[in-house]
Amino acid sequence: MAFDSLSAFLAMGGHGVYVWAAWGVTGLLLVGVVIHARAERRALLRDLRRRARRAQYHGASGAAAPPISHQEGRARES
């Protein structure tokens, strides 16, 4: 252990602001990436299920449904 106490650890020998700012931003971004990836996957699966239900309702095979646009959100209403 390089520090004697928790306050010494947080102070980082006077460099606490720099160390925690750099680590904090990195940590937030990594967590944000994971949250985004999970949300994206959930939303896509939900979308697929909704399309499947719609296809069933219309009695179609579902294969005729338009593909999800690569420009997310924009051309969705087509």
Binding site: A2, M12, G13, G14, H15, G16, Y18, V19, A22, W23, T26
Partner: peptide
């Protein structure tokens, strides 16, 4: 000092 710990990210 301790500012070098930024290297790890």
């Amino acid at each position: 000092g301790n500012s070098f710990r930024i290297i790890y990210v």
